[in-house]
Amino acid sequence: SPEEIKAKALDLLNKKLHRANKFGQDQADIDSLQRQINRVEKFGVDLNSKLAEELGLV
Rank of each mutant, 00 (worst) to 15 (best):
S1V: 08
S1R: 10
S1H: 09
S1Y: 10
S1I: 08
P2Y: 14
P2N: 13
E3G: 08
E3R: 06
E3D: 13
E4N: 08
E4F: 09
E4M: 08
E4Q: 12
E4H: 09
I5W: 14
I5T: 06
K6W: 04
K6Q: 05
A7W: 09
A7N: 09
A7P: 02
A7G: 05
K8S: 05
K8C: 07
K8D: 03
K8G: 03
A9L: 06
A9H: 01
A9R: 01
A9W: 05
A9Y: 05
L10P: 00
D11A: 14
D11K: 12
D11G: 06
D11P: 00
L12N: 03
L12A: 05
L12M: 11
L13R: 00
L13K: 00
N14I: 13
N14K: 15
K15P: 00
K15L: 09
K15M: 11
K15E: 12
K15A: 13
K15H: 08
K15W: 08
K15C: 14
K16W: 09
K16I: 06
L17N: 00
L17P: 01
H18N: 13
H18Q: 13
H18T: 11
R19C: 14
R19F: 15
R19V: 10
A20T: 03
A20F: 11
N21L: 15
N21T: 14
N21G: 08
K22A: 12
K22Q: 13
K22M: 14
K22P: 02
F23V: 09
G24D: 06
G24T: 07
G24Y: 05
G24W: 06
Q25P: 05
Q25N: 11
D26F: 07
D26C: 10
D26H: 09
D26A: 14
D26T: 11
Q27C: 08
Q27H: 08
Q27T: 08
Q27I: 09
Q27N: 07
Q27P: 10
A28R: 13
A28N: 10
A28C: 13
A28H: 12
A28F: 08
D29A: 14
D29G: 09
I30K: 05
I30L: 07
D31N: 07
D31F: 04
D31C: 08
D31P: 03
D31G: 04
D31W: 05
S32F: 13
S32R: 15
S32I: 12
L33C: 02
L33N: 00
L33Y: 03
L33V: 06
L33P: 00
L33E: 01
L33I: 15
Q34R: 14
Q36P: 01
Q36Y: 08
I37T: 01
I37S: 01
N38H: 11
R39P: 00
R39N: 13
R39W: 15
R39C: 15
V40W: 03
V40M: 03
V40D: 00
V40S: 01
E41Y: 09
E41S: 10
E41D: 04
K42Y: 06
K42C: 08
K42N: 07
K42R: 12
F43W: 12
F43E: 08
F43M: 07
F43R: 03
F43T: 04
F43A: 03
G44V: 01
G44N: 02
G44R: 00
G44A: 02
V45N: 01
V45G: 01
D46L: 06
D46Y: 05
D46N: 08
L47Y: 07
L47M: 12
N48C: 11
N48M: 08
N48K: 10
N48P: 04
N48F: 10
S49T: 06
S49R: 02
S49V: 02
S49F: 02
S49Q: 03
K50Y: 09
K50C: 10
K50E: 12
L51T: 02
L51C: 03
L51Q: 02
L51V: 04
A52F: 09
E53N: 07
E53T: 09
E53F: 13
E54S: 06
E54G: 03
E54K: 04
E54L: 09
L55V: 04
L55N: 02
L57W: 07
L57C: 04
L57D: 02
L57G: 03
